[in-house]
Structure formats: structure tokens, C-alpha cells
């Protein structure tokens, strides 16, 4: 029990950090699913590209181991450029790989998404090689910085990731709940045709959705780089699967659900490693997931919409 209590606060911090990244990825999955009912399996690779864009910005602004401008601005720039770049990438992917398939059978965009995923991974390997890149987080945030609560340590990097994630989520909630675009998005999610008939520009809404979802993935990529430092061409594969899982657990298509699902998955993994068995982490995480879905077949926050006939 002592060992448990000694680890508990630290494991919560670990889980929250991991969960924040999962949640940001899950949001993109969930938003796209909401408006198009399709699984965007290239989403994980957009996240990977985001991590690389952030890396590029960082290298450009820290040429010789000394930051050119204040580190805080570098972090903000990394985030903004990565979000913009990934947003545009997401829109381009939608235009070229998914739009022609909008009224096709469900699995067609899925396969096309896998094609995009193959393409992005290998394009990155071709141009940037398969090597691991390391974010020089220590030059942005002093390694020792952090908050101590007794034996528990909340490093500054982790605090930053959690705070940025929460800010992004609040902005997103505002966007979806309070703005006209958000209203249009919700309308398209509920019934695309009816929304179109009410004068909503469905194409524009879909573009906006892809832009926002992909931008969040880009932010997740940069945050991953800042806190876990390693960036490589294949990182989107597993992360994409985790994000997908989180989105489904939360109730796919549901934005607060994706956030909740992400944090839940991060916590589950962290606790599985800390208190049960690191080796069987994924097994435990999936067992939890299956139990959640058996109890709530439409995810934690998924609405029980009666089936349309």
C-alpha cells in the first residue's frame, strides 16, 4: 500500500501528460467522424508531420545551441506554425483523398486514408531519413524547472503540456458552442442534408473541421516533442491508434467525449504500468476499453440516438 501511495501522485502526472496528447489526437478523429462519419486513419501521420514542423521551427530558431529569441516565443511559434501547417495539410488531404469519395461506400475513404498514411510516412522517410530527431527542450525550458509537492515532482514541461492542452480545449469548446461556424458544424454532424438545405455551406464546414482537427494533431505533435523529445517518421502509427481508441471510448463524434477518452486512456496506461504490469500495459488498456464499451456501447458520452430508419 505504501508503494502504491508513494507512486500515485507521480503516476497521475504521467497519466495526465500522456492523456493530454491522446486527447488532442482523439479530438481530430472525433470531429472528422462527427461531420463525415469516416475514420481518418491518416490522422496519426498528420500528428507526425506536426512534430516535424515544430522540430524544423526549433532548429531554425536555435541555430547554434543558443535561442535567437525568448524561448517562450519559440514554443508559441512552434505551436502556431505546426498547427497552421497541419491544418493546411489536413485540408489538402480532404480535398484530394476524401472529397471524391464522399458518397462512396464506407470503406473506400478508409482505404484511401491508409494510402495517405503510407504516403506521408514514406515521404518523410525519403526526405528526412528514418533517424530519430530530438527536440532540444532543455534549451527552451530549463531541465530542472518544475514544482515540487513533497516527493512528487511536476516538471515544467509536463505542466506546460497539460496547460496548453486545456487552453486548446477551452478554445475549441468556445468555437463549437458559441460561434456560427460551431453551430454549422454541429448541424452538419446531426444531418448533413438537412443542414445543406438550411443554407449551411457543407463543404466549408468540412474544410474547417479538417483544418481544426488537423491543427490540434499538429499541436499534439509539438507537445509530444517538447515533453517526450523523440520525433520520427513512424510515430504517428501507434499514436493514431491510441487517438482512435480514445475517441471511440469517449463516444466517437462527441468532442468532450474525445477529451475524456484521451485522459482516461492515458491514466489507464499509466496506472497499468505503475500498479499492474508494464509488460501487459496494452492488454490491460484494451480490457478496460472493452469493459467500458460493453457497459456503454456508444462510448462514455456518446448519445443514444435512436437509429434512423
Amino acid at each position: 500500500m505504501d508503494a502504491f501511495l508513494a507512486q500515485l501522485p507521480q503516476q497521475i502526472i504521467n497519466g495526465l501528460t500522456l492523456g493530454a496528447v491522446y486527447a488532442l489526437i482523439a479530438l481530430g478523429y472525433s470531429m472528422v467522424y462527427g461531420v463525415l462519419q469516416m475514420l481518418n486513419f491518416a490522422h496519426g501521420d498528420v500528428y507526425m508531420i506536426g512534430a516535424f514542423i515544430g522540430y524544423g521551427v526549433m532548429v531554425a530558431l536555435i541555430p547554434e545551441g543558443a535561442p535567437l529569441i525568448t524561448p517562450v516565443f519559440i514554443i508559441i511559434l512552434m505551436l502556431l506554425v505546426a498547427m497552421l501547417g497541419c491544418g493546411l495539410l489536413g485540408v489538402a488531404i480532404e480535398q484530394f483523398a476524401y472529397r471524391p469519395l464522399r458518397n462512396s461506400p464506407r470503406l473506400a475513404p478508409l482505404i484511401s486514408a491508409l494510402g495517405v498514411s503510407f504516403f506521408l510516412q514514406n515521404a518523410v522517410q525519403l526526405t528526412l531519413t528514418a533517424e530519430f530527431r530530438n527536440y532540444q527542450t532543455e534549451l527552451l525550458i530549463p531541465p530542472g524547472a518544475g514544482f515540487d509537492f513533497g516527493d512528487t515532482r511536476l516538471p515544467m514541461t509536463r505542466a506546460l503540456v497539460i496547460v496548453i492542452t486545456i487552453i486548446l480545449m477551452i478554445v475549441l469548446q468556445y468555437l463549437v458552442r458559441r460561434t456560427k461556424l460551431g453551430k454549422a458544424m454541429r448541424a452538419v454532424a446531426i444531418d448533413r442534408e438537412a443542414a445543406a438545405m438550411m443554407g449551411v455551406d457543407v463543404d466549408r464546414v468540412i474544410i474547417a473541421t479538417f483544418f481544426i482537427g488537423s491543427a490540434l494533431a499538429g499541436a499534439a505533435g509539438v507537445l509530444t516533442g517538447i515533453v517526450f523529445t523523440r520525433v520520427w517518421h513512424f510515430m504517428g502509427f501507434t499514436a493514431g491508434l491510441k487517438g482512435f481508441t480514445a475517441a471511440v471510448v469517449g463516444g466517437i463524434g462527441n468532442i468532450p467525449g474525445a477529451m475524456l477518452g484521451g485522459f482516461l486512456l492515458g491514466m489507464t496506461e499509466s496506472f497499468a504500468v505503475g500498479f499492474i504490469s508494464p509488460t501487459y500495459r496494452d492488454v490491460i488498456a484494451f480490457v478496460v476499453l472493452v469493459i467500458v464499451l460493453l457497459v456503454r456501447p456508444r462510448g462514455l458520452l456518446g448519445a443514444r440516438i435512436p437509429q434512423k430508419v
Partner: peptide
């Protein structure tokens, strides 16, 4: 591309999947 045949292979497969799906969604 001709210098990296292993990577090019998979790039091709990716493009093939996208193009085939767009032209023959069924």
C-alpha cells in the same frame, strides 16, 4: 526515388490505394 527502391515501393502502394479508390470507389 530510383535510389531508394524500398521506400519508393511503399510510396507507390500509398498512391495506388488513393488513386484506385478515387477512380473505383466500389
Amino acid at each position: 526515388l530510383s535510389q531508394e527502391p524500398s521506400i519508393t515501393r511503399l510510396l507507390f502502394v500509398g498512391v495506388l490505394l488513393i488513386v484506385l479508390m478515387i477512380y473505383r470507389p466500389n
